[in-house]
Design a protein around this nucleic acid. Structure first.
Lengths: 334, 334
DNA sequence: TTGAAAGCGCTACCAA
DNA sequence: TTGGTAGCGCTTTCAA
């Protein structure tokens, strides 16, 4: 411990005392309040005092008193974020910051979307909440959040969530689009990769289901970990599997699998066609160039505008406010 | 139920009224306070009332009253996060959550590390602050944060930051290690890629400087955008550049450049050796396999433990608390 | 075992 | 143009 006296953080009362004015005046000056007109001399004294003391307003006190927050909560999804989602989050942070919101991402290893999680979000009394993983939102959770004063409640979910503005994001459609492409190319026996990572498995299973719905019983589930060894093992089984088309979950797994198949002497796409998802740059750098399912997320600035409106008018009736654009980008691998 | 629950969020006073007890009792029950012993009957009544009303405590009010927070602030760095940093952040969130902290990531388009940014962080009165981009932390900013009560102040920075527990993270060393590898292989004229993206340029220039310090004047700066076109343009100039070794900023840029060089008929590593950074899985999938600079981040759980200690004893003298482990993973490309 | 009451730091209404 | 002041919702000491 240093022998320096630990000075407590200065409060607005300290600033007022130093400037020789009241706390109200300090508040007026520091918030540039239009209601009260402060003389330039007083204003300067207050500002100087605040700067001298290194005054920093207390966000919790402010929001407690004012009853509202300019915070948008953007919890981390339970599935690992790829560059796609990460880029979207960054763009959204940017757009919302332009509108004067602070975007906060929280995320622990909690069960996503459950009542406890919803309570944890509600405790922060955010102005808006955007849930990437909206399927897990329960009606009780939605009710809790609404009653706690969350103005804008937006979720990505496969189907409309009652009481919530929903962006339709059905991962099945990704699998269906991939399977559709493979079937159109004449593939008869399809494989679909499901990541072994627990966190990514939910997404993988949704995509698998979509492929099954599109291709019927001609689909084989392929569990794959994100390692060269796992891919090599899968590739070694390939002749026995007898698959002529595979949807590899996403572009990264596709790169992993394609490399293993090529190393095992399986011609792509001649013997087996491969489809990825995400349409990342890396797919265009592979040889053969990777056919991929493009996943078009909503426009971040438009979503920010929507959130802004909903915060201003929290009574708006929840509707479907957007949808993922799913399309196959055909290249050489399938 | 005699009356409809109000639209406004119920407070602990509402719970107290419904349970027929005082607000103090409600607080005791809901916080499992050891100081006061509450009869089981009362406890049950309070819990039932809270559940009925959908009571959610108000985090701001709680932290205002108690004067402390269990929040660790982990602002987004100004440089775009790769999978390396993202994974580290996720692990840290996990470790800190185990210790009862909520990790919050904020990030707007603020000037990183400036005084305004520091004030923005200080307003939240976090228990701890971990700055990835510590070089921009000014002494005034550090002072402000300290005085606002931040217990643990930890930063990643190229050199020790006064008043801050620093993890030494000098990006020059990445460039130096790459250049060292290339020189050891006998390369005479080196290129170093600097990303054109504004956000990544700072990191790129640091790595370039490190390479220059290691290799003297034999280094050529190569600006490259993250697109195939940009890479093709660079590759077309390659014969004129006369370089026999290149450090490509990171593994992704290395993949991009290597593909362009190969398409332009430049043999890798025969004609030009290529080194990446980050040691991602994708480097092992490329042919030739990518030589890469591994960047070992600190152990997340150890860092979480340190933060926990510092929160408990905020007077601890700031020291260097760790260092990036930089090592070259030699493969085929260099 | 429970209740009354004093604030935490701040904003905003109402007087002066 | 400025000051007094009443709370926002919560925790916690002290009394009952």
């Amino acid at each position: 411990m240093t022998d320096q006296p630990t000075r407590a953080a200065p409060t607005s009362a300290d600033v007022a005392r130093r400037a020789g004015v009241s706390r109200a005046t300090v508040s007026y000056v520091l918030n540039d309040s239009g209601t009260a007109r402060i003389s330039d001399a007083t204003r300067a004294r207050v500002l100087a005092a605040a700067a001298d003391l290194g005054y920093v307003p207390h966000a919790a006190a402010r929001s407690l008193r004012s009853g509202r927050t300019r915070m948008v909560l953007l919890p981390y999804p339970s599935t690992p974020m790829g560059p796609l989602v990460y880029g979207f989050f960054a763009a959204l942070r940017h757009s919302l910051a332009e509108r004067g919101y602070a975007v906060a991402s929280f995320g622990g290893p909690h069960a996503p979307g459950g009542l406890d999680t919803a309570r944890g979000w509600a405790e922060l009394r955010p102005a808006a909440l955007l849930v990437a993983d909206g399927a897990a939102l329960t009606p009780e959770g939605v009710d809790l959040l609404r009653r706690s004063g969350v103005g804008a409640l937006v979720a990505f979910a496969p189907r409309p969530v009652p009481g919530v503005h929903t962006v339709l994001a059905d991962q099945c459609r990704v699998g269906a689009a991939a399977a559709g492409r493979l079937l159109a190319r004449g593939c008869r026996r399809l494989g679909v990769v499901v990541p072994e990572t627990a966190a990514a498995q939910g997404l993988g299973l949704s995509r698998l289901r979509g492929a099954e719905e599109a291709a019927g019983a001609r689909v084989e589930r392929l569990d794959l970990a994100c390692t060269e060894e796992s891919a090599a093992r899968l590739a070694a089984r390939w002749p026995a599997l007898g698959l002529d088309g595979v949807f590899a979950y996403n572009d990264e797994y596709a790169m992993l699998l394609m490399r293993a198949l090529q190393d095992a002497g399986v011609d792509v796409p001649g013997r087996t066609a491969v489809v990825g998802a995400g349409d990342l740059l890396l797919g265009r750098l592979l040889r053969p160039r990777l056919t991929s399912v493009r996943i078009g997320l909503p426009d971040a600035s438009r979503l920010a505008a929507l959130i802004d409106e909903l915060v201003a008018d929290p009574g708006a009736v929840p509707t479907v406010v957007g949808e993922l654009k799913i399309e196959v980008v055909a290249r050489e691998s399938a």
